[in-house]
């Protein structure tokens, strides 16, 4: 059970083997996706026909690589825009929420806290359709009663941003609250004692302390927004973010181009992960 207790060699070897098998299971699909980005074949499948860079750099017409596929490139840009907006608003609201829940007492706090946690347990598809229904309802009424055409409430990027924001704010709030909870308030009191106003104390003492959590939350939000599928699927209009584009390509029939995009996505995420680790180390 634990290292200080005697156990037989067989049990120990079996345990280690199990854990290795587990990590092989975790790694298998990712490794395979990456590997087949370099297969010199029109299908991401066996047999292995040798190594090629075509799925990254070929310019057509036989094969088109990622860097020459306009639709894919455009959807990457779309995803980045969406993720940027979502990240900004989520982290901003989450920071305010963290202060609200950690520092303030008000009637109904518990109820509000439970509401705040709800997006974690609402399936993404449901969250998507509820926002779709609500927004369309408002747009329809505005159209019927005021003869006002509120286009941004129709399926499209604005709704995608709102939908992702709705649940990522919860995640960011949890990350930032956890760090704020550890903050020693006597530091703020010391700042007040040394002549700072409450607002200045928060900006010079508390927020710098929260910075690792803010950066961590921002990275998580950006990544989860970039990779979100379920909520986005329900709210998307004509401009498709990357995951939607990939999904429709996948249904048409997969080519190693998808592997190449996936590999780039994985590299991008690992880069973000490394940045976040480096940042946590530094502080």
């Amino acid at each position: 059970m634990i290292p200080t207790l005697p156990r037989s060699n067989g049990v120990r070897v079996g345990f280690v083997a199990y854990v290795m098998l587990f990590f092989a299971y975790l790694a298998a699909p990712l490794v395979i996706v990456g590997l087949f980005a370099f297969n010199d074949s029109r299908f991401p499948a066996l047999p292995w026909n040798g190594f090629t860079w075509d799925w990254f750099f070929a310019s057509g017409p036989e094969r088109t690589g990622v860097f020459h596929d306009r639709a894919v490139l455009r959807s990457i840009a779309t995803s980045a825009w969406v993720a940027g907006f979502v990240t900004f608003f989520s982290v901003l609201f989450a920071t305010l929420n963290a202060f609200l829940f950690e520092r303030h007492q008000f009637p109904g706090k518990n109820l509000l806290y439970i509401c705040m946690l709800l997006p974690l347990v609402i399936p993404g598809v449901i969250l998507g359709i509820s926002i779709l229904v609500f927004a369309s309802g408002i747009a329809n009424r505005a159209d019927a009663l005021l003869n006002l055409e509120l286009d941004f409430l129709r399926p499209g990027l604005v709704l995608v941003v709102l939908g992702q924001f709705a649940f990522l704010t919860t995640i960011a709030t949890l990350i930032i609250s956890a760090r704020l909870r550890k903050f020693d308030r006597s530091l703020e009191e010391a700042a007040l004692n040394l002549g700072a106003t409450p607002v200045v104390a928060i900006f010079t003492i508390t927020l710098p302390y929260l910075r690792p959590a803010l950066v961590g939350a921002a990275l998580v939000c950006f990544l989860m927004s970039f990779e979100n599928f379920n909520t986005t699927l329900m709210l998307v209009g004509s401009d498709a973010p990357l995951t939607i584009t990939l999904f429709s390509r996948l249904r048409e029939g997969a080519t190693p181009l998808l592997n190449a995009v996936s590999l780039l996505l994985m590299l991008g995420s690992s880069l973000l992960a490394l940045v976040s680790i480096a940042f946590q180390r530094k502080t």
Partner: peptide, 22 residues
């Protein structure tokens, strides 16, 4: 690590692993 990779990519990986020509 798998959490840092899009759900779509992960599922795609399983498709390549499990399909007939996989």
């Amino acid at each position: 690590v798998p959490f840092w990779v899009s759900e779509l990519v992960r599922t795609y990986g399983w498709m390549i692993l499990l399909r007939e020509t996989g």
